[in-house]
């Protein structure tokens, strides 16, 4: 009998090792070691061919060169603005799906909202370019309606970038919002109304506190994706986009200055992580719960 127990123990250990190996290989070879390597890369400076010293030169360049940190701050601010706008646009539709529409109608509206996001971001951006460029659909419509005399260029503005970013982010806001609003008991709203609450105060004191987990989850994901977006800012913003991911690309691929690009990458990662952490702190949520919700 002890012999079989020992075999069973060994068998269990073997299974555990077999299951653990691929997971560890994945996390170490593709996530942890590459990021440690990237950190090392960002802290070195080339002094002669194949000669490197440890230094903060890459980070000094970033803070010393206004262009770089301006683009960084700009990217952060526009991402925050895009996140806020996405929340404003998504909240009413999430409310309608979760509370106003009933049964099949609600399910249908939800699916319809998801459809565009099954299509590649490239295709959606192509659509916006056809709509907004000077020879495009909306400028032609504006001339036709007599609002402008000449077709105006609607691409390459900050507002264009924001429209594109809000558009690509909507899904990631609507889904967690609908989830958190559906769990809100209607009786609470009715009770608040009977006690004399007005629309605004009900929203502030009942709805938003209840939906806070969903709001945080949506905002964290949207901010992160916006910050790391490359396609939408570069195509809709053109040369004026000045998005930080573009700087990373330029350093890495065009200039082949990997040390500088690695430092930029780390700064972006630091900002992204800081915002995720801050969002969790403010709302007092756990990281794993938020990720499962999103």
């Amino acid at each position: 009998m002890p012999e079989t127990a020992v075999t069973a123990l060994w068998y269990r250990r073997l299974v555990l090792a077999l299951l653990l190996a691929p997971a560890l290989l994945w996390l170490f070879a593709l996530i942890i070691l590459p990021h440690l390597d990237l950190a090392l890369l960002s802290f070195r400076e080339r002094v002669a061919p194949r000669q490197y010293v440890v230094s903060l030169a890459q980070y000094r360049t970033f803070f010393g060169e206004p262009l770089y940190w301006h683009v960084f701050v700009r990217t952060a601010l526009l991402s925050a603005l895009a996140t806020a706008l996405t929340l404003l646009v998504a909240f009413p539709i999430a409310w309608i799906i979760a509370k106003l529409a009933r049964g099949r109608m609600s399910a249908l509206l939800f699916v319809v909202c998801l459809i565009p996001f099954w299509v590649s971001e490239t295709v959606r951006t192509l659509g916006w370019m056809i709509l907004l460029r000077e020879s495009g659909v909306l400028p032609a419509l504006l001339v036709h309606l007599g609002i402008t005399r000449q077709p105006v260029e609607l691409l390459y503005h900050d507002a264009t970038i924001l429209v594109g970013l809000v558009y690509t982010s909507l899904l990631f806001m609507v889904v967690p919002l609908v989830g958190s609003l559906e769990s809100l008991d209607n009786a609470l709203i009715e009770a608040a109304y009977d006690l004399g609450g007005k629309g605004w105060s009900i929203l502030r004191e009942i709805v938003i506190p209840h939906a806070a987990p969903g709001i945080t989850a949506g905002c964290i994901v949207v901010f992160m994706l916006t910050l790391g977006n490359y396609l939408t800012p570069t195509l809709l913003g053109g040369k004026n986009s000045q998005w930080f991911t573009e700087q990373i690309y330029t350093q890495f691929i065009t200039r082949f200055n990997w040390e500088q690009g690695a430092a930029f990458g780390f700064l972006l990662l630091a900002l992204s992580t800081a915002m995720v952490w801050l969002g969790l702190k403010i709302s007092g949520q756990r990281f794993s719960d938020v990720m499962r919700r999103a």
């Binding site: 593709l30 996530i31 390597d37 991911t245 990373i248 690695a262 990458g265 990662l269 992204s272 794993s288």
Partner: peptide
């Protein structure tokens, strides 16, 4: 295991490229 989801795609790309 959740960490890869909060790393921007561009940075996943450059870190794997450099490594």
């Amino acid at each position: 295991m959740l960490i890869p989801l909060v790393i921007p795609g561009v940075i996943l790309g450059i870190s794997i490229l450099a490594f």
